[in-house]
């Protein structure tokens, strides 16, 4: 069981690292969204600090949305997904490995670059640890729910906009508690509550979503 998990993980990471270009594109998009936003506001810092958590999370949400279609699309085109579906190993394990590989090449990057960017928005350094924790707990949920949407829209040629309509409503809890934790950290309020809920959402997503993604793939390919 674990050999398939590590095999799929290793394969996807190799593919991702050999196409480093796409990784850089996702990162650049995220940096641009966050870096250019202040140009649209007046220069006094209070506005930026207040809006920084929402901006970081919207930047992450949009970047995740953009990077989602190379989660299953490539394997679907080359017929590898067919092999995954008929493999002896449970599809949920394979899917979990794929989403982990996807998270490592996108979510994890946002967890690292997010806090650095947020300094540009004038957020006190003291709030950075909470920001990292919130992003680290939130991005896996975004990846898992996004994978469900990506699997459901697999057979569609251009699923980008539809994908956002399917998964953004499901991202609301992560956005609320993620940004809520950051806002509390900035003003020094207790952050434990929000982070615990984020942790619960993360656990829920990581354990339940792979089975749903597997079902979505079987439904999506059954045309």
């Amino acid at each position: 069981m674990t050999s398939v998990f590590s095999a799929v993980l290793q394969r996807d990471l190799t593919v991702a690292l050999r196409q480093r270009g796409t990784l850089v594109h996702h990162l650049m998009f995220f940096v641009l969204v966050v870096a250019l936003f202040p140009l649209g506001t007046n220069t006094d810092g209070t506005v930026l600090v207040a809006v920084a958590p929402a901006l970081i999370w919207m930047g992450v949400l949009l970047s995740v949305l953009l990077s989602l279609n190379d989660l299953f699309k490539a394997d679907h085109e080359y017929g590898m997904l067919t092999q995954y579906l008929i493999a002896d190993e449970p599809l949920a394990i394979i899917v979990a490995a794929k989403v982990l590989a996807y998270w490592l090449t996108s979510g994890a990057i946002f967890v690292i670059t997010g806090p650095v960017l947020v300094l540009m928005l004038g957020v006190p350094v003291a709030a950075l640890p909470v920001m990292i924790a919130a992003l680290a707990l939130g991005t896996p949920v975004l990846a898992m729910i996004g994978a469900i949407g990506s699997a459901l829209t697999l057979s569609l040629p251009r699923a980008g906009l539809l994908l956002s309509l399917l998964i953004f409503p499901l991202y609301v809890p992560v956005l609320i508690f993620g940004a809520g934790a950051m806002r509390a950290a900035i003003v020094g309020l207790p952050v434990a509550g929000a982070l615990y809920v984020l942790g619960a959402l993360c656990l829920l997503a990581v354990t339940l979503a792979p089975w749903v993604i597997a079902a979505a793939l079987r439904v999506g390919l059954d045309t």
Partner: peptide, 9 residues
């Protein structure tokens, strides 16, 4: 028909 071969690998 499609050979399950990723062009990158």
């Amino acid at each position: 028909h499609d050979n399950a071969l990723s062009p990158v690998l």
